[in-house]
Design a protein around this nucleic acid. Structure first.
Length: 153
DNA sequence: GCCAACGTTGGC
DNA sequence: GCCAACGTTGGC
């Protein structure tokens, strides 16, 4: 089993939205590296750090899990939709998405600042300068450490 | 709102 | 295949 960090802007879709919905489809990823992680490596049961990007402060807001493995991002087929991409067809889909289920919300958000200042999290991808990847693998140790910082479970 | 860092596109 | 121009991400 692998661990992941997935970014979402809370003004678009937050951990509270996921708690309400229980499950959501993770459409709109339009980056090849992120797509490959979702399509090739994500498995049902993998745990996800739900990260609030473009927020004040940005940080990890809670936990999700993969409940459905990659399938074609059908928003890419919808003309006039902002995720439409004419290069992607149902015969030969270019973009993929997974479904993410709600697991838990942190009592307090673990901010990017805290993450950067935590010795045990040295080298974590999300703290690297200019890390824009919206789907990132994370080591189990780092994952667990962030849960511990959040006093989660 | 600014802008640095990055990924993608397209002319050559 | 290079690389300038462009668009986007996301912290600040």
């Amino acid at each position: 089993m692998q661990h992941w960090l997935m970014k979402s802007e809370p003004t678009v879709y937050s951990i509270d939205d996921l708690e309400r919905d229980k499950v959501t489809s993770w459409e709109g990823v339009r980056n090849y590296q992120a797509r490959n992680f979702m399509r090739d490596d994500m498995q049902i049961g993998d745990l996800v750090l739900f990260y609030h990007s473009n927020a004040s402060p940005p940080g990890v807001a809670g936990i999700g899990k993969i409940v459905r493995e990659a399938y074609p991002d059908n928003f890419a087929f919808k003309k006039d939709h902002k995720y439409y991409d004419s290069r992607s067809t149902s015969e030969k889909p270019l973009w993929f998405m997974v479904d993410v289920g709600f697991v838990g919300k942190f009592k307090n958000l673990i901010s990017l600042d805290q993450i950067k200042n935590e010795k045990a999290l040295e080298g974590i991808m999300v703290a690297k300068k200019g890390s824009r990847l919206s789907v990132q693998p994370i080591s189990e140790a780092h994952f667990k450490h962030i849960c511990k910082m959040a006093d989660y479970k």
